[in-house]
Structure formats: C-alpha cells, structure tokens
C-alpha cells in the first residue's frame, strides 16, 4: 500500500556514529550475507569473477575528505543504507503497492512478489538506498532486518539488524527513534544527531552522529608552556632525581 501511514506505532531505525566508523565494510558484507540467504531474492552479482563485477548491496560505505579552513584535512567513513523515512517518497511513487511503510514500526519494505521492477522508487529516493537486482529484476532495499528483529528462532540478544550486530567498532545503533527515552534517542540528543538532506523533506528516521572536533590537542592555548622543566642541565636533572627519590615513600629515612 503506497499511502503512507499518518503515524507509526514505533520508529525503528539506525543511528550511525561517524565519529567512530573506521570504514571497515563489515556491515556491508554481513548485510549482503544475511540478505542473500534470507528475506526475498538473493542479492546477486553479475560478472562476479570477470572484468566488470557488479552486485546488489543494501548498505554501502562511502568516504569523504573534509578540508577545514585551516588545519589538516580529515577523513570520514560514511555508511549509508535506507533511512526508513517517515515521509518516504519511494513509497508514494510505487504504482503497484509493492513498496510500503509498516504501521507497527515504520520499516519501509518492498513486497517482492508485487514488484514490477519499474525502478521508479529508486529514482524517488534521494539517498540511493534502493537497488534493482540484476538477476531477479525486483527492487531490493534494506529491510532493517525485519526477519531478525522479531525472530523467535534467534536468541533475544540477536534480535537486531545484522549490520549492528557485526560492527566491530560499535558505530551502529538500533532502536526506537520515536521513543524519546530510548537509548538511541538519548544518543541522538547527546551527540547532536542529524538528518541527511533535510531539505528533501523525507523526514528520515535514521540519524547520523557527526564526527567530534578533530586536532584539538594543540589548540588549547597556543602560548602555554606545556611542561615545566625540572632543571635546565642534565646535571641539574640528576640533582632533581636525588631529591625526587628522597620524597618517594620509603625514600631517605
């Protein structure tokens, strides 16, 4: 159903910490693995061992260089998957109803057996979060691991998206962003979590935590003498050493 629900019971989503993401691609591959074996058609690859390999991925990690006005350039690793927008344009454009946003948790999904593979929803998504599978010819996108987060065949602690479970740096968090008391909402509040392309009006549920300020070590007070010498001369240093040793517990009696 391509009408968006006026409100969802919960707003499940991801919070991605750009301060901590080391760009290891673990989330990319675990997502590929899980979603190849689970929900819907496998994520295929064409020419996988050839000259032009290309495959379907639901999560990709970009990297950007940021050049401050002065100071060293910085590098930011930037994972991106579906943001499960509240105002998801990909849903409303879908002619078949294959794309829909779930009322109970806000997850945006594609019902593959209804999808005609017209590609319009991928056009409508500003973030590049939808990919047409080249073999199955249906639209694939992040499912927020809907087949894990409620899965009673998994131990309780594993009922989270697989990219979150696998992230070695702990840069990915999952929870209810509709609940201001949830851990993810708290994190967003504390760290100034932000929306991507807010001007697009998509109202994304996923939030990004910006990198903390970098290279502050010598920005404190440019003129401060950092460490006070105990003596200017090596000889003086040994004198200091003698005195210092005397002051230690069990020094000179």
């Amino acid at each position: 159903m391509t009408e968006l629900p006026t409100a969802t019971d919960r707003k499940l989503g991801l919070v991605i910490d750009l301060d901590t993401c080391v760009g290891c691609h673990a989330c990319v591959i675990s997502c590929k693995g899980w979603n190849t074996e689970n929900y819907g058609a496998p994520l295929s690859d064409t020419d996988p061992y050839g000259a032009d390999p290309s495959g379907t991925f639901l999560n990709r990690v970009h990297s950007y260089e940021v050049q401050p006005e002065d100071g060293a350039a910085q590098l930011v690793h930037f994972p991106k998957s579906c943001l499960h927008c509240d105002n998801a344009p990909c849903v409303t454009v879908c002619p078949t109803g294959a794309s829909y946003k779930r009322v109970e948790d806000g997850i945006v999904l594609v019902n593959e057996s209804d999808c005609i593979g017209c590609g319009l929803c991928a056009w409508a998504c500003p973030y590049g979060a939808r990919e047409m599978d080249a073999v199955e010819k249906v639209m694939k996108k992040c499912t927020l691991c809907v087949d894990r987060i409620y899965n009673e065949n998994l131990p309780e602690e594993d009922r989270e998206p697989v990219c979150v479970r696998t992230c070695p740096a702990g840069a990915r968090h999952f929870g209810d962003l509709g609940d201001p008391d949830s851990e993810v909402s708290q994190l967003v509040a504390a760290r100034g979590g932000m929306d991507l392309m807010p001007e697009q009006g998509t109202a994304p549920v996923n939030k990004y935590l910006p990198p903390r300020p970098r290279d502050q070590l010598d920005q404190v007070d440019v003129l401060a003498p950092y460490l006070e010498p105990v003596a200017q001369e090596p000889r003086g240093f040994l004198g200091w050493l003698d005195r210092a040793l005397d002051q230690m517990p069990g020094g000179k009696e």
Partner: peptide, 10 residues
Amino acid sequence: TGLSSGAARA
C-alpha cells in the same frame, strides 16, 4: 553528508 567542519569531497 551533514559534514560541516569544512568542504567535503568524495
């Protein structure tokens, strides 16, 4: 990207 501490480049 939301990156604001300087000009971002891919």
